[in-house]
């Protein structure tokens, strides 16, 4: 099958999930209770808001990842043809990975890879 399989699989996933939730809806006789709607925090009411500004530590990694991942995409087409191109490909990727590695060292030196 071709790309149509993607649509089929998405539909299958949706059907499976929705079917499960709907079947559960039929069986469940829920009771109403204001306690049920509370967020779970070990049985104590939540203090303050959850959706507030958050430590940047987590996002730094996402940014660095983005840079590296884009570089990684460039390696894919190279990887396919490397055996045909031969030695030249090795030198090219050496330069590429060298630059990438320098970037990595720079990020490391700047402390971007340290958890805050």
């Amino acid at each position: 099958m071709g790309s149509i399989s993607l649509i089929v699989l998405v539909l299958a996933a949706v059907a499976f999930s929705a079917g499960g939730i709907l079947v559960a809806k039929i069986f469940v006789k829920g009771t109403k209770n204001p306690q049920k709607g509370q967020a779970y925090e070990c049985g104590i009411k939540t203090e303050g808001t959850t959706w507030n500004q958050f430590n940047v530590g987590y996002y730094l990694f996402a940014l660095i990842f983005l840079i590296f991942d884009v570089e990684l995409i460039f390696i894919y087409p190279w990887a396919v043809v490397v055996k045909k191109v031969g030695m030249m490909a090795l030198f090219e990727i050496l330069v590429f990975i060298f630059i990438l590695f320098m970037g990595f060292l720079y990020a490391h030196k700047k402390g971007a890879l340290k958890w805050m």
Binding site: C42, G43, T46, G48, T50, Q53, F54
Partner: peptide
């Protein structure tokens, strides 16, 4: 501001 106050326990 920006700090998260979390209850750990009594049911943890």
């Amino acid at each position: 501001e920006g700090d998260l106050v979390i209850n750990i326990g009594p049911q943890h």
